[in-house]
């Protein structure tokens, strides 16, 4: 009985290792596009895998299911952090959402503005925009990945684009 328990323990740990090896590059790419900095992206990826490590039984079997689970957890962590900042911001308006570090050159300032506009979007909307516009995922694929309907994805895409344009036209003031 003890030997069986130890074997299943080893299996679970090996599975988490394999999960990390398979998914960390793709998860980091998504995290980097959702987070304001490299450090935040690293934190997001680590926290996502730590959640998997803490409850390995909740991670579904199969590469695509694993990926969808990890993406959902990552987006949820983003949302939690975003909400925490929103609450703090409600009490202290001087607190801002995490944004990319400022760049001195004008081209980089423009880039920074675009990314700042993206970072101003709610995390799920931001994730949908990144998955569609940058990763080239289809609407049904995003819907499956985030466990939402295709209509919801389309709505977030439309609203997200409009919000970004509004922010960019106003010169980055959100």
């Amino acid at each position: 009985m003890v030997a069986t328990a130890e074997r299943s323990q080893e299996d679970a740990v090996a599975r988490i290792g394999a999960l990390f090896d398979t998914h960390h590059p793709r998860l980091y790419r998504l995290a980097r596009r959702l987070a304001g900095s490299t450090e935040d992206a690293r934190d997001l990826v680590q926290e996502t895998f730590l959640r998997a490590a803490r409850s390995p039984s909740s991670v579904p079997e199969g590469t695509s299911h694993e990926e969808a689970w990890l993406v959902r957890v990552l987006v949820n962590i983003c949302r939690d952090r975003w909400r925490q900042i929103a609450v703090r911001r409600h009490h202290d308006p001087s607190i801002s959402y995490p944004t990319s570090s400022g760049h001195p050159e004008s081209a980089l300032i423009a880039k920074s503005m675009v990314w700042q506009a993206l970072e101003g979007l709610p995390p799920r909307r931001r994730a949908i925009l990144v998955l569609y516009e940058l990763e080239g995922k289809t609407i049904p694929a995003i819907a499956r990945l985030l466990d939402v309907s295709a209509v919801t994805v389309r709505w977030h895409l439309s609203v997200g684009r409009r919000e970004m344009v509004t922010v960019l036209e106003s010169g980055g003031r959100s």
Binding site: Q9, A12, V13, F20, H24, F49, L50, A52
Partner: peptide, 23 residues
């Protein structure tokens, strides 16, 4: 992207967490 060292450190932290949780 993540450097090899960052990947190793992160992987170790994740595997250790899994080990602790299982134990």
């Amino acid at each position: 992207g993540l450097s090899d060292v960052e990947v190793r450190v992160m992987r170790r932290a994740v595997v250790e967490a899994a080990n602790e949780r299982q134990a």
